[in-house]
Design a protein around this nucleic acid. Structure first.
Lengths: 250, 250
DNA sequence: CGTTCGATTGAGGAAGATCAATTAATGTGG
DNA sequence: CCACATTAATTGATCTTCCTCAATCGAACG
């Protein structure tokens, strides 16, 4: 997969330049939830699931701490990590469609979620419009993020996808006030590859290349720890991958 | 892009076998909308937009007739068709995140949408829970579809992606009671390629191959008309593409 | 009737998958 | 605590898929 004909009815207008709306969590929402509902905190250890595909959908969840992956399996057995979620993110939207979850949500390390009954959320939301608005906004961001992934998968070469993955992770931490210069990937290369649509070998090579180009650095302890001295460097790296493709089209 | 290590924490459980929930539209929703709101019908010709990126989000829309594409552009100018929508589908969810659309919704042929003010929908929804439930279910299906696309892009070779695209189109028509044996693609090869993450040449080759294998047939008039004698054949074709990859993993 | 745009098809090349071997981390039982 | 077993990661060699470039053909349109 690589850049392809970006000729889809050229619009000459300058655009507002959409990128994934990473400014997600907002303690305002949490405050609203706390105020109107009795969110049940629930602790989970690595590997435990918040919910599993096939279970009845009754609750939505907001990540309180830790990080979680959302895994989907298609009818023919293809399995894929479709999302990685951090503090402030919601989990469980995949149950809205038909009252049954169709993904697994799994803790990647020790963490906690606040669980909210959907029926109570609906009730509270109809009394308190701001709550319903916030809920819908979260849904909208979820859609935007999925589409941003889709875009990355379709238009970026593998190196850039890995770079963007790291940038995204770092930005997620940053927007939540966590330190971003050193991040611990709680996924194997195989999982990252699955998430990004490439093989584990390609992930490994991409990381090596990023390290060689000084865009990232590996900590001494293992190669799961990645140091990101400058997030901007990651962005520039992605830009450099996109630029040549565009140049030829102009 | 091609099948890759599908080793993401193997779960031994038999799964409910999720596939895109194509059973979308439901005239029930339309009836609800008609009953509680004053949906404004709006006619559009090919190329006209329901809304554009950057515009304020005020309305949601339900496709009444025709087909529409949703196009997204990233900050660095990568452009992509992120969705194709038919009768009964909603448009406009991309405005929920922050009150501004970040995609264009464009008519691919003459068609019409019913436009609903979001604030009125909220108000009506809090009086009539069934309406809000239906709205949320539509959002959930939207998410599920995006994830299904993501899965296809990541795990299927290009031929199979084209096959699935056609199957999806045919199924969309079928679930809306339209004839499915003969469909008119209202997209150029370049657009299909953009949507599926491949070049127009690859789309063309894939279609030729599908025709050669008798899975589809071209009508005499032009190559935009595609006959699908048997939707099952398309599914089997996709299966055949997935099977070998899985065989080696077992 | 020529021009233009979209589609098809072929040849060559590059990105990334696959296969395979090695090395580093992690975990386990003695 | 250490030897061993196991799993994860790296790196190289090769092969496949799909992209790129280019030529041709057909359909639509003025």
């Amino acid at each position: 997969m690589t850049p392809q004909a970006a000729t889809v009815e050229r619009t000459a207008l300058p655009r507002p330049a959409t990128e994934a709306p990473r400014a997600a969590p907002s303690s305002a929402v949490l405050a609203l939830l706390q105020g109107h509902l009795q969110p049940q905190p629930r602790m989970l250890h690595a590997g435990e699931s918040v919910y599993r595909a096939g279970e009845r959908f009754t609750h939505l969840h907001v990540v309180h701490s830790g990080c979680f992956k959302v895994v989907s399996m298609s009818a023919d057995g293809r399995e894929k990590v479709v999302a990685v979620r951090f503090k402030g993110d919601w989990l469980g939207f995949d149950g809205l469609a038909d009252g049954r979850h169709d993904c697994d949500a799994i803790a990647m390390d020790t963490g906690a979620v606040l669980s909210i009954r959907y029926d109570e959320l609906l009730a509270a939301g109809s009394r308190e419009p701001a709550l319903m608005l916030a809920f819908h906004a979260a849904l909208g961001r979820e859609l935007a993020r999925d589409r941003s992934s889709l875009m990355s998968l379709c238009t970026l070469p593998s190196d850039a996808r890995v770079a963007e993955f790291l940038r995204d992770w770092a930005e997620s931490l940053a927007s939540r006030g966590l330190r971003t210069d050193q991040i611990t990937l709680r996924m194997t290369r195989a999982e990252i590859g699955n998430y990004l649509g490439m093989t584990l070998e390609s992930v490994s090579r991409a990381l090596s290349r990023l390290a060689r180009e000084e865009v990232i650095r590996f900590a001494e302890r293992g190669r799961r720890e990645v140091q990101i001295p400058d997030v901007g460097a990651l962005e520039r790296f992605v830009e450099r991958c996109v630029a040549p493709a565009r140049a030829t089209l102009q």
